[in-house]
Design a protein around this nucleic acid. Structure first.
Lengths: 153, 153
DNA sequence: CTTCATGCAAATTTTTTGCATATCT
DNA sequence: AGATATGCAAAAAATTTGCATGAAG
């Protein structure tokens, strides 16, 4: 078979149809999915696919740094093909998860700050809960955001 | 009873011994705990305490903005008395969770960046996985951190 | 041909829920 | 009194594991 298995080979992890399809799904979609979703969509191509296999494939891909796993405030973990660290914004109202690219300077600043404590960061996760632009419009009068230490009242 | 129930009253949530003790535990310890840990330690004072009650108390406290819930890459959620947003650093080797105060500028920068997308942030979570100073020392030769887009190779 | 991934089934872990009763305001 | 939290038991959700077999390097 000739799927998008190059990255797996390069990383030196064993290539199987299951892993290759999971990887392809994430890489081609360019977005995040739960293990369930990945399972359902992989089954269409590999009917015998098991959910536990999805988890094991994702773990292998994650260890190979091809995939990132994010734990949000609610629901199952989300997986996506690895790109530069970027925030995940979860809307409290519609539940949608947004993932804008964060400016590298912000991320670098964060990493630098963490490094001050002598910590070597391998993975960085930024997750925010709040209201997305769409739902903000619907909410009329609400207001108020995160209060940061040292801010003026 | 006369525990540390003032904040609960002020927030207008019903005060019960269970909630007051959960709150006191978190506020006095100044650190994070899993629901299990809170349960075990609350039972010492309230023998009939149920784990489900701990979860329900934590949810009430969270909605009142007295408590913050963090979902780390592994294990159960951790809860702590609400303070300004700060990172959680999880050591991959020893499993310890560190929570240094983050400089307000960094956090503000992050919030500002997120606001650009029109998102109103209510909660912000920064979670990093990596190696803590102690474990870094033990590891001899390892190296490598998070690669940020736009960095020099 | 040896090592490791998969399928299948079952177990674990973490969190949530229904309902009768007790407690708070 | 009226609203809501708790205890208890059971369920749901998410993820992990054991083991025999099959596929990959």
């Amino acid at each position: 078979m000739r799927i998008s298995e190059k990255p797996l080979k390069e990383k030196g992890i064993r290539v199987t149809p299951q892993r290759a399809h999971v990887w392809r799904l994430l890489a081609e979609s360019g977005t995040h999915m739960s293990a369930q979703e990945i399972w359902e969509r992989t089954r269409e191509v590999l009917p015998g696919m098991e959910l536990s296999t999805v988890y094991r494939a994702l773990e292998a891909l994650r260890e190979a740094n091809l995939v990132v796993e994010s734990h949000l405030p609610e629901g199952p973990a989300l997986f996506e093909a690895h790109v530069s660290p970027h925030p995940h914004l979860v809307c409290e109202r519609c539940g949608e998860v947004f993932h804008p690219e964060a400016s590298p300077e912000i991320i670098r600043g964060l990493l630098a700050a963490l490094a001050v404590g002598g910590f070597e960061v391998h993975e960085l996760h930024v997750v925010a809960r709040g209201l997305c632009p769409g739902c903000l419009g619907d909410e009329g009068g609400k207001r108020g955001g995160v209060r940061v230490e040292g801010e003026r009242g």
